[in-house]
Simulated assay, not measured.
Amino acid sequence: MAKPKIGVIIGSTRPGRFGDKPAEWVAELAKATGEFDVEIIDLRDFPLPFFDEQASPAWAPSQADGAKAWQDKVASLDGYIITAAEYNRSPTGVLKNALDYAYNEWNNKPVAFVGYGGVGGARAVEQLRLISVELQMSPIRNGVHIVWADYAQVASGDKKLSDFAHLNQAAGDMLKQFSWWVKALKTARDNDTATAKAA
Rank of each mutant, 00 (worst) to 15 (best):
S162H: 09
D158M: 11
V147S: 07
N97E: 13
P15F: 03
T187P: 00
H166Q: 14
A122S: 15
S90Q: 10
E86A: 06
E35D: 10
T92Y: 09
G120Y: 07
A188V: 04
D37M: 07
L77I: 08
N107S: 09
D65P: 14
R123P: 10
Q136S: 12
K109D: 13
W181F: 14
I131M: 15
V38W: 15
A155N: 07
F51V: 06
G143N: 14
A30P: 08
A198G: 06
G19H: 02
S56V: 04
Q177W: 11
A27K: 13
V94D: 03
R14I: 04
Y103P: 11
A122H: 04
W59A: 11
V144P: 14
G34M: 05
S76R: 05
T92I: 03
E28H: 02
K5G: 02
Y80S: 00
K68R: 12
T193V: 13
W59K: 06
P110M: 09
L130E: 07
A165D: 08
L48V: 12
Y101K: 15
A198C: 09
A155M: 10
T83G: 01
W106S: 05
S162C: 03
A75F: 15
T195E: 13
L95N: 04
F46H: 14
I131W: 14
W148A: 10
T195L: 12
S132M: 00
K31R: 15
G115W: 08
I6T: 02
L128D: 03
V26M: 07
G120S: 14
K109M: 03
Q71G: 09
S132H: 01
F18E: 00
K109C: 03
P22N: 08
F46P: 05
R141Q: 07
T193F: 14
D190V: 03
F113A: 02
N142F: 08
F46S: 05
K197C: 12
P47C: 11
Q54A: 06
P15V: 10
I9H: 05
Y101S: 11
Q127H: 05
K3C: 09
A98Q: 12
R141E: 07
L95Q: 09
G11R: 01
V111H: 01
N88K: 05
L48E: 10
L48C: 15
I140V: 15
I146C: 06
D190C: 05
Q177N: 14
R189P: 10
D192N: 12
D37W: 10
G172K: 12
V144T: 09
A30D: 07
R89P: 00
I40Q: 11
G79C: 06
P4K: 01
A112E: 01
L48S: 07
Q63M: 12
A149C: 08
A184K: 04
A199S: 08
V111F: 02
V38M: 12
N108Y: 15
N104C: 09
A27S: 15
T83P: 05
H145V: 02
S132W: 00
A2S: 06
K73A: 03
K109Q: 07
K96D: 14
Q71C: 10
F50Y: 15
R14S: 15
I9A: 02
Q153I: 08
T33L: 12
D100G: 13
N168S: 06
Q177C: 07
Q54W: 01
K159E: 06
K68Y: 02
S90A: 12
A199M: 13
G115I: 10
V114S: 02
K109S: 04
V182R: 09
V119M: 07
K183I: 03
G7S: 13
I146N: 08
